[in-house]
Amino acid sequence: MRLYWKVVLINGAVLVAATLVLVFGPVSVSRQPAASEAAVLLPGLAVMLLANALLLRSSFRPVEKVVAEYDAMLERLEDERAASNAKALAAQEQERHRIAQELHDEVGQQLTVVLLGLKRIEQQLPPDLGEELATLRESVREGLDDVRRVARQLRPGVLEDLGLASALASLASDFAAQSPAAVQRQVAPGLPPLSPESELVVYRVAQEALTNAARHSGATSVVLCLSRVGGSVVLEVTDDGRGFDPTIAGAGLRGMQERARLVGADLTISSTRGATVVRLAVPVAA
């Protein structure tokens, strides 16, 4: 039976019962109800409500079960979506890594060979030919610079070669070069080591937070801080700019959340005019 009819029937039955009691029972209600009448009416009303509630509850039980199942399914879907996003992110990082390596180790080296070879030949040629070769050498250099630039965007080589502190320093100086705001870097000494995946997440979150601060905040001062708080390593990027509503996320902020999730880290953004803080807490592996 449809739930709607069930409810109508139950309510109807309760009302009919009440009416019968009122009509055939030993009760009556005057125009101005006396206290004795109220003493009968009120318990009667209570009985009616209770009966109604009990009867309805059993009818609604299956509905509640369905709602709970539905909620659980939504949650599961969300988890699955996040997991597959995480997997895609990891795959993307891996692919970037491979391409960058290839660029560095193959294309870059070959171009270096050409560059050095041209330089050597140039010195043994008559001046007019030498000049032509010199322009060739410049375009090889430009090619090499391009390769390097692309590889650097694909993969933060500093992070792998020199570690997180140097990589953050490098982000800070990139920031200083592209923004008029002053950037301050505070990296606590002797931080516990993180897994390479976690370090990459810290790096990417810092990168996006700094890019946002440079692009949107209009801040005059930015602080990049890495420290230890309890069992976590905490990254904080703070700016004193105009602030924003962090619940309205763009691709950049969503990317940060997804990356944080990837390594079980906790990302929180708080923002008011004059103080925006992006905070990432990465649990240190026991």
Binding site: G157, V158, L162, S170
Partner: peptide
């Protein structure tokens, strides 16, 4: 190959 001052400092 890396154009990054951090390598110089290291």
């Amino acid at each position: 190959m890396h154009d990054n001052e951090q390598y110089f400092f290291e």
